[in-house]
Design a protein around this nucleic acid. Structure first.
Lengths: 364, 364
DNA sequence: GCTCGATGTGCGAACGTTCTCACAATACAA
DNA sequence: TTGTATTGTGAGAACGTTCGCACATCGAGC
């Protein structure tokens, strides 16, 4: 019977009905000051009766806090980002925070636009997978303007902000080493490797060899190549540049083509390392279409663990990223910042696990 | 050199620097009234110089519009929801709207809490996959309160709100019919079938047979069972209740176990229809672990198309849902509502496609 | 008796915008 | 000249909260 056309019930009306001032009503409803039991009861009853719901815009305007976290993901459609987002959303929800989502598609222009929008919407903090580790003045400015930032998956050079990453380099090195230990000498890598300023693979290898490169702010696929190179170096195996499959784009089809190319080399590799989930998908597509047998004709390890890798033939041994945990951790760091922590920037590195599934054996 | 400690540059300061009133500055910056070229230039220059960014909270408070869409998904981590979200986000971004995301995990209590939060944050509209097609007073109330709602994937009974769905029943009927046409008579179905008030499969079948049930507001997995039953009826094939695998939970493991059960029946089915992506995954897991050959020993069609179904063995013929398009459509309907459309509730039904991949053949 | 802290309440001013007016100035037709 | 529309500008009131302050009451301690 209670007919409310528009839900424009404000605190003023509640106060009026309860016979108190708006300030008092606010104290009860907002829970931020003194109020006698008697009055508390009265105000709450009135609020209940009118169906009062606080207007978080107004509250945010005055407190300067919106209890909203802005997230800039690359592409929520991908399992990687969607799992991370899930982790973020869970932690945020538990603390009564909202999550404002945007996609950058790994384009700087779009990230810029997104950060802009989120800042204008006055989010309390920004969780970002930065798509450029150098040109990120917008993030610096936001940080300086008092908006905390937590990076994930990669880190901007010299940005004094929290970050959650994994040790790509180490996991990749260990994966390659385990292939080497199994007896493999010709191991191919299939990786995106899109952006790098001195874009040349040869010079990258040279700098890795000379130890003149800082891996922390590289993009993940480069870090994984880094580990690949290191594993070869420490085992004393010469690198064959033909075995480095630089896909150059984040696309299944491009990965498939590059994988086909690698598998058709005159001296075909006996091992294959794919540097992320999409690359693994492309590789498996190529492998099944060529009828190559795993692990008899080819041993394989992939980065990222997708559900099908465990229940389909060929099963794929994979480096498992703790995706949801990454999101949760990022959100927790963010909440601490929002709560006022001003500790120096923290960098959390989560552990990676290798899920062994029998796609690795000795070379024929 | 321009040092701004906190980015608290307000329109007042811009106005001051430009030597105009805040009202005029607002008109220029907000683009909503007269202003001479001369003054426009001056205000814009001042804004630029101070690094002015509008506070969308304040604007929202006064206009009553936040240019934000609230989304209640089941679980963004699933490919289904994340693709839909992507579609929504794309359309929203193009129109300068933000997307506030929540997960319900298909729990009514959580959906309620989510809707509450979103409304308090004053979203301009709600895009929801309602997790109960009956008890949805919170949605009714929101709608009545003036907050437009667009449902997707399923529809609340008698809720006068827009909706975007697919014709699950028809697609399922056609899929089953194609198996029947191929000669199959013992076709199993693997489906979630968790909630239904008169929870009994037998009574459901009876009501379908008697045509005394309205499919529109059923949950998708029930609609798909509906089509399964219809296909059998119209082909004159007796239903074998043992072939209806009711998983009862949305879980890979539960689906796997139920699939194992079906495949171990004394008189094993020659065809299998899995009612969504997760069910297909569970089924394929069971199939590969039992070493059943597709399509030689078992023909299979799945609902939902996931990437691995096309590039792995066994390849799975699948009903493809236009997921991204669903999200886009939902967002477009929402934007029209926000723009003021007061047409009667629209129900958009998107087309489904069957991707034939050779997992269907004649029974042995 | 007085002061003091703790508790309880209301007034009015924020917060950063947009919106409604009022009012000028200009231009053009009657 | 007058009227009327168009364009341009500013003062001040919204929007729905919270916050700072003033003030009132109460019991305890001296």
């Amino acid at each position: 019977m209670a007919e409310k056309r528009t839900d424009k019930v404000t605190i003023t009306e509640v106060a009026l009905l309860a016979g108190v001032s708006t300030a008092t009503a606010g104290r009860v409803l907002g829970g931020y000051g003194y109020a006698s039991e008697e009055i508390k009861k009265r105000v709450k009853a009135s609020a209940e009766r009118l169906g009062y719901r606080p207007n978080l815009l107004a509250r945010g305007l005055i407190t300067g806090k919106t209890r909203t976290i802005g997230v800039v993901a690359g592409d929520i459609q991908s399992p990687f980002y969607s799992s991370i987002l899930r982790g973020i959303a869970d932690v945020a929800r538990a603390e009564g925070f909202g999550v404002l989502l945007t996609n950058s598609d790994e384009l700087l222009a779009r990230e810029l636009e997104a950060v802009q929008l989120l800042l204008e919407k006055q989010v309390d903090g920004l969780i970002v997978a930065p798509c450029d580790t150098e040109r990120s003045d917008h993030l610096r400015k936001a940080l300086k303007g008092g908006c905390p930032i937590v990076q994930f998956d990669r880190m901007v050079k010299g940005l004094g902000a929290d970050a959650v990453t994994v040790d790509n380099r180490k996991a990749s090195r260990e994966a390659i080493s385990s292939l080497i230990d199994a007896g493999h000498r010709r191991i191919a890598i299939l990786a995106e490797l899109e952006r790098w300023d001195s874009g040349d693979i040869a010079s990258f290898i040279a700098r890795v060899t000379a130890r003149s490169i800082e891996p922390a702010t590289l993009f993940p696929s480069w870090q994984r190549l880094f580990g690949y190179v290191e594993a070869h170096l420490s085992a004393g195996i010469d690198l064959d540049r033909a075995l480095i499959g630089r896909v150059g784009a984040y696309s299944l089809e491009a990965a498939r083509l590059q994988a086909l190319h690698l598998l058709r080399l005159p001296d075909r590799p006996t091992g294959l390392f794919s540097a992320d989930g999409l690359m693994t998908a492309g590789a498996v597509d190529a492998i099944t279409s060529l009828g190559v047998q795993i692990p008899d004709q080819l041993s394989m390890i992939g980065f990222d663990d997708l559900d099908w890798m465990s229940f389909l033939k060929p099963q794929i041994t994979a480096v498992v990223q703790p995706v949801t945990a990454m999101g949760q951790t990022a959100a927790r760091l963010m909440l601490e910042r929002i709560a006022g922590s001003d500790s120096p920037p923290r960098h959390v590195t989560l552990e990676l696990a290798l899920a062994r599934r029998g796609s690795v054996s000795k070379p024929a």
